[in-house]
Design a binder for these strands. Structure first.
Lengths: 246, 246
DNA sequence: GAGTTCCAAATGGTACGACAATTAAATAGA
DNA sequence: TCTATTTAATTGTCGTACCATTTGGAACTC
């Protein structure tokens, strides 16, 4: 049980790249489990003494660890840097950032997404429990109900679409698929918006989500895949239409 | 052509979370293309004036951007923060960190790779030209020849394995598959090493690569997929064996 | 003129000190 | 007992000075 004043094996930081050094030592301590998630590191001033350096160096190192998603920093008394449970979100943001900086052909993205979506669907049917499947179906139902109420809030629909995708990815019980799916949703949800901008595609897409989730809940993999195929056919059509009009 | 003294749209940082604010503004400027890769940001002292804040805040923001892989920092005259070309390495490391901290089962990674490998193979057969296919086959042949010469250099074999995977991914003509494959190869090739450490698995794996590339060159997708399946069955067996002995 | 050496400027890296802002806990008061 | 206030601990910010490294030019030597 590492407390705030514990003597972790921190050695004085080397000159020139002290910030790097400090960050690496603390990261190693976290990865070695010397500090458990939920516990806090010593205060910046304590760390400054342990590393025999300036407070600015410690702050830079903390900033780096925070960016990596390793710690969470709280202000005030009893504040400090608390070791965080690893979240797939950080890794996803990193991938999304990379994808954003490259301008990638939307068709390539659709192709890729369809590929992993099919696998995810198969895995979700095989591995997730009945409750999850019904929850997924209910969420698709909820999206459909929003539509009939004459409330075509595009932002809300797109958000629900993202959540359905991520929820489904989680049901695959494989964190790597979650990684990819979240990254795609973070970086390229704008392409999906076109599906919900047009009344026809909006109606078809929502109905397709209902069909897909229904087949998943019914443990019908082939029919679910067929429905997935329809989804991406719609998306490609929609992108094609948009390209022609622009 | 943004020069070091250009007036980018930076507004004074808000108190309380100035570091965040600065980092976000600069990141937005980079993502909007206001600063092109290779160009440099203003010096820390200039930025301090533009944001009307302290230099420590700027340094923390820079550290965050550096951690995200957005900039590269050089010391000395004509030094500063230079916008970097996006690298897949960062996303890879981020995922590796997550998987390590959460102690994710290697089988998840194998499952994921098999999934996209199958799609890549189909696409490669459909889209790549005959020359590429023959080149791929030749490279597998070369690996086999290394084996018969009684020169079991594990590092070389693993490297050739990586190259075969990336080459195949490139033949899919979809850059996303290529990036994902690179990310996986960068961060997690260590698992594959076990295939080449054991004489039996080494022999089988190399023979399997020959078979796979041969079927790809022959435009036989189903047989190629069958061979791919064999590859991952071997990998799972190998991991299982390793787990039992440890 | 060519090459070398040396120095000065620019820039990131470090250290230190002071104060502000925020938060949890202790304390005083009703 | 409950509430309001104070207090202490901690992060967040600012400023200054100085060190280390790199570049480029100036001065010097051959």
């Amino acid at each position: 049980m590492s407390d705030r004043t514990d003597d972790l094996g921190f050695s004085p930081a080397k000159m020139g790249r002290a910030g790097e050094d400090v960050a690496l030592q603390i990261e190693a301590a976290i990865l070695d489990g010397k500090i458990q998630p939920g516990e806090s590191l010593p205060s910046e001033r304590d760390l400054r003494d342990q590393f025999q350096t300036g407070r600015g160096v410690i702050r830079e190192a903390m900033r780096a660890l925070k960016e990596k998603g390793l710690v969470e920093i709280r202000k005030g008394a009893k504040g400090g840097a608390f070791v965080k449970e690893a979240e797939v979100k950080n890794a996803s943001e990193s991938l999304a950032l990379f994808l954003k900086q490259r301008d990638v052909d939307p068709c390539c993205l659709v192709e890729f997404r369809e590929s992993i979506d099919r696998t995810i669907t198969i895995l979700a049917i095989a591995r997730s429990d009945e409750a999850s499947k019904r929850q997924l179906e209910a969420n698709a139902e909820k999206m459909a109900s929003l539509l009939v109420n004459g409330d075509p809030d595009m932002a809300t629909l797109a958000e629900m679409d993202r959540e359905l995708n991520i929820q489904l990815a989680g049901m695959s019980k494989n964190p790597i698929f979650q990684w990819i799916m979240q990254a795609i949703q973070l970086g390229f949800s704008s392409h999906d918006d076109c599906l919900y901008a047009d009344p026809y595609f909006r109606k078809e897409t929502v109905a397709n989500w209902q069909e897909t989730t229904r087949q998943i809940a019914a443990n019908e993999p082939m029919r679910a895949l067929s429905s997935i195929g329809r989804h991406y056919a719609l998306l490609l059509d929609c992108l094609q239409t948009r390209k022609e009009t622009s």
